[in-house]
Design a protein around this nucleic acid. Sequence first.
DNA 1: TCTGGTGATTGATGTTTATCAATCTCACGT
DNA 2: ACGTGAGATTGATAAACATCAATCACCAGA
Lengths: 232, 232
Amino acid sequence: MRPSQTSEIRKLDLFRDMSEENFLILTRGAYVQTFPPQVELISEGDAADFLHIVVAGGVELFAGWNGRETSMATLRPISTFILAATIRDAPYLMSARTIEKSRVILLPSYDVREVFDNDNDFARAVVAELAQCYRAVVKNTKDMKLRTSLERLANYLLRCRAKNEDADEFELNMEKRRLASYLGMTPENLSRAIKALRPYGVEVEATAVRITNLSDLEKLAKPTPLIDDKSL
Amino acid sequence: MRPSQTSEIRKLDLFRDMSEENFLILTRGAYVQTFPPQVELISEGDAADFLHIVVAGGVELFAGWNGRETSMATLRPISTFILAATIRDAPYLMSARTIEKSRVILLPSYDVREVFDNDNDFARAVVAELAQCYRAVVKNTKDMKLRTSLERLANYLLRCRAKNEDADEFELNMEKRRLASYLGMTPENLSRAIKALRPYGVEVEATAVRITNLSDLEKLAKPTPLIDDKSL
DNA sequence: TCTGGTGATTGATGTTTATCAATCTCACGT
DNA sequence: ACGTGAGATTGATAAACATCAATCACCAGA
């Protein structure tokens, strides 16, 4: 593994405060691989052999049961995934696939656990990361159980807007079928929900979104930091 | 704080490997309080001033939005709750109320974070706990998004059966209205779902459940460790 | 023992959401 | 330019689920 290939993950909160020595242990057995779109990187139920890090492209986490499938999250660089399974040495609860051409770093779980056992700062960084992930999933559960699909879409668009520096025009960064699955609805229902938001000042054309009446949309969406604020 | 009142939490994974000295720091400012039923211990949005531990009774975690409310989890002794908020010094994402007369230990978040910063074993124990909680919420999300309400009920009953040493007769340990909310349905819908499970060998009378045809129920429920196995 | 109140159940009805089928759109390779 | 195919949209229908209203069952307190 050439250092140049792994140095870009050094700035992640998870690795920032780690000694160079331990970082080398972590990366000595690492792979960097580039995958085409739609490649299944991991399958739920498999042993967690590697901690994955997307450094370019995009990765979808999804889960299936009884012939059904649902999108759980979309990861953009630079993000780690399945840290919990790696640390606990437990099977993956979710599958992962590339959604476009992507570069992924794979750190052997064995090495991650070794450094975790010996590097106290790393252990604390893992806590911060896991606590963040945990809270994100709790917020997601609240979104799912407390809101209708129309309200979920409205709030999703407001979150996108916030992520784009409060720009009233932005691009959806995923296919509508995947967005629908992420929001817990069918593609047909998403189409209709988008039309239903037009009276609230939302114009969607292909992947381009324009919000023309923020206050009306917010009156419908009723966003709250306790569900919609990513940093909280 | 008399040691006798806090010694019972010593056996929790979270505290088991901690030095006596650090345990004393953790508990020197602790409160032990007994609450009647239906007392709201914490409200979502509040600052996380204490790490809570139920040592007797029962506590419900719930969340609200826009006049709606949903049950997120039921905690039985001995369980900690809102560890993530305590560690991150962030506001609670969920509220908590007693569901019966309960005894609760409150450890000041400030002390928890102090010990967390100084005790490496405790930091690792926190990782284990958070990873477990994270995976539990992910499983819950999969349950919600991939299954119908009938399937969720069927699998819930199978999980109850497993928790009761695979006994085919057991008691529901919560009110039906709360179970309904936890499962993401209305009380009326739960009533009908229970009736709909009768052809699959499920008899429910008040809180008493009897499973008379396990294989039929399992054929409907299709349980999977990746959603239903608590230890995984 | 009565009685008030809370939760559970049942039936009737309405809303939301999924499913199915038929286009429609558009990027892509030939 | 011309098909081709995957995703998106639309309409019609069906299933799932919520709501509303009316009992019913039960138990804690007078």
